[in-house]
Amino acid sequence: MDKFKNKMMRFMQGRYGSDQLARLTMYISFACLIVTIFWHNTFIYFLALVLLIYTYFRMLSRNISRRYNENQIYLKCRYKVIAKFNGFKARMRDRKTHRVFKCPGCSQKIRVPRGKGRISIKCPKCRIEFIKRT
């Protein structure tokens, strides 16, 4: 067992290995394979095989800088999606106690408490004042 482990470590030396993008493509390919068990669709099966081949290609690649850049692009896109989702979740959580208005000058979102009637709102970014009903 120890011999195999050393051999595998020497083989993987200088190769990229696994990262978040590789895990995502692996999960998607396994999900596609599970779907093909119940619903026989050759396109989904082909997609799963292509994703598996791409995942192993990335993991065994020696072009580390390129694989790192691919992973960084994926992480940036993932962060944007998660940030939008968290913002939406926060707005839904506060929708009964606060309202959100956009500044007419700079489109900055400004959160104000509900139930205050007509109030003058001053944008913290561009200092424009506008009147809205909460």
Rank of each mutant, 00 (worst) to 15 (best):
T42P: 07
P113S: 12
L60S: 08
Q72L: 13
F11K: 02
K122E: 03
K116H: 15
A90V: 13
R78Y: 14
Q108L: 12
I119A: 02
G117C: 06
K116W: 03
I119N: 00
R99T: 07
S120V: 11
I34Q: 05
R93A: 12
K132T: 10
K122L: 06
R67E: 05
G117S: 10
A31H: 02
A83T: 08
K132I: 10
F101T: 14
L33A: 12
L75V: 07
S65E: 15
I64F: 04
S107Q: 08
D2R: 07
K102S: 13
A31G: 04
K5A: 12
T36P: 04
T97I: 07
G115F: 03
R62N: 04
K3L: 09
M1Q: 15
T97H: 01
N69K: 09
Y16H: 01
K89T: 13
G87L: 10
K84W: 10
Y27L: 00
T134R: 01
R58Q: 01
M26Q: 00
S107A: 11
R114M: 14
G117P: 01
A22T: 10
G14L: 05
L52A: 07
E70W: 01
V100H: 08
L33S: 12
I44G: 11
A48K: 02
G17Y: 02
F4I: 15
A22K: 01
V112Y: 03
T36Q: 12
P104C: 12
I110F: 01
F85P: 14
L24D: 00
G115C: 00
A83M: 06
K3C: 08
G117I: 06
M26H: 00
M8Y: 15
S120A: 03
K7Y: 15
K125W: 06
K84E: 07
C106Y: 06
R127A: 07
M9Y: 08
I28L: 01
W39S: 09
G115I: 10
I128F: 14
H98C: 10
S61R: 01
F130Y: 09
L49V: 12
M9A: 06
V112P: 00
E70G: 02
F46S: 05
K89Y: 11
K125A: 11
I131Y: 13
K132P: 05
I64H: 09
R114F: 04
N71S: 04
K84P: 09
M1L: 05
K109T: 11
I37E: 10
F30C: 08
R67A: 11
R15G: 03
I37V: 11
R99G: 11
R15K: 06
Y54A: 08
R91K: 10
K89M: 08
R133A: 07
D19W: 05
R111M: 13
W39P: 06
Y16E: 00
R95V: 14
H40W: 15
F130L: 09
K122V: 05
K132M: 06
K125Q: 15
R58L: 00
C77I: 06
K102Y: 14
D94F: 08
H98L: 11
K84L: 10
G14E: 01
I53E: 00
M12S: 09
S29K: 02
K80D: 08
M8H: 09
Q108W: 05
I128V: 12
N6A: 14
T134S: 02
G17V: 03
R15S: 01
L47K: 15
K84I: 11
M9N: 04
P124C: 02
G105V: 09
